[in-house]
Design a protein around this nucleic acid. Structure first.
Lengths: 163, 163
DNA sequence: TCGAGAAAGTTTGACGTCCAAGGAGTTTTC
DNA sequence: GAAAACTCCTTGGACGTCAAACTTTCTCGA
């Protein structure tokens, strides 16, 4: 993860030189993409110690936050903003590892409930601690303004009707 | 892409309630993740009209920016910060579609050069225009401060030795 | 000069994401 | 009540990413 050039500055120079449009937007988008790339790598590294990926951690945390530890598959996808097929995939693996189990919905035969197991609860709490320890990949010598990040990205999310 | 709740605020509430650590960092990381998710969807949608994905567009643009339109596979991965196997994959598909062709390196038999074709140059320029038209997924009714995004994410990237 | 080690790409396998299609169950409608 | 319409989930295929193993080629030192 050590570079001898700034990918964003590099991109900016090239776009400028070729007269391509929306340079500032491009640089902002590239920054977000790169920051995400960095975060995901660090986060996945942290949760892998607990046999998880970030996706699985998110699903597990979501279930853990629930009253009775269960949620219909569809709700999981909705909350996590991922496709239903991705939920099937994620729950498959969590179930394989005994962190989650599928149950029939008592009233609606179409619905499948994903329920976190006791083991799942242990794992997700340990993983959350590991993530906290690295400040979710945002840690390091340079000071990061967490609140500013949230603020500056809010309009981006709002433009996509994110809330 | 329309939600009736704010995923970040939601996450913040849940973490708070369970006493989990680094809430502000979590919210910032979640914002970045979500912003990236939004951008990627919009960008991919824009370039798909030209038979590209964002990855392929990036590779194509990189080659287009080069003096002679060629770059060793390894250099492509280095610039794009992706694994060598991903480069192989991306170039395979670009080559299949006639946007790129592989050539032997004249001096080093180990090296494979990825070279953009004339068709590739046409496509990448059209795609760049499409991306500019949507401000790289950052467009919308709410005003987005491009420069602020770059500034606020700089320490995140610097913490990962990104430049 | 010759063999060990390094370097460059590709292949294979695991993961995550999406889309499209299909099966099963429920609700609506006539 | 039965057929049509809708909902929920899973399956299969395409794509992108990474890690590890492997092949080919080059380099360097004994």
């Amino acid at each position: 993860m050590t570079l001898d050039f700034d990918p964003v500055a590099e991109a900016r120079r090239n776009w400028q030189r070729h007269g391509w449009p929306s340079i500032d937007a491009m640089a902002a988008a590239t920054s977000i993409t790169r920051a995400h790339q960095i975060l995901l790598a660090r986060i996945d590294d942290a949760v892998s110690a607990h046999g998880l990926t970030f996706s699985r951690f998110e699903a597990l945390a979501l279930l853990h936050f629930t009253k009775d530890g269960c949620l219909p598959m569809g709700k999981v996808g909705e909350r996590l903003q991922v496709h239903a097929a991705s939920v099937t995939n994620t729950v498959d693996r969590l179930e394989r590892d005994g962190r989650v189990e599928r149950r029939r919905h008592p009233e609606d035969g179409r619905t499948v409930l994903a329920c976190i197991t006791d083991h799942g609860r242990e794992v997700v709490q340990e993983a959350a601690a590991s993530l906290g320890a690295i400040d979710f990949g945002l840690g390091g010598p340079d000071t990061v303004d967490f609140a500013a990040i949230e603020t500056v990205l809010a309009p981006v999310r709002r433009n996509a009707d994110d809330f």
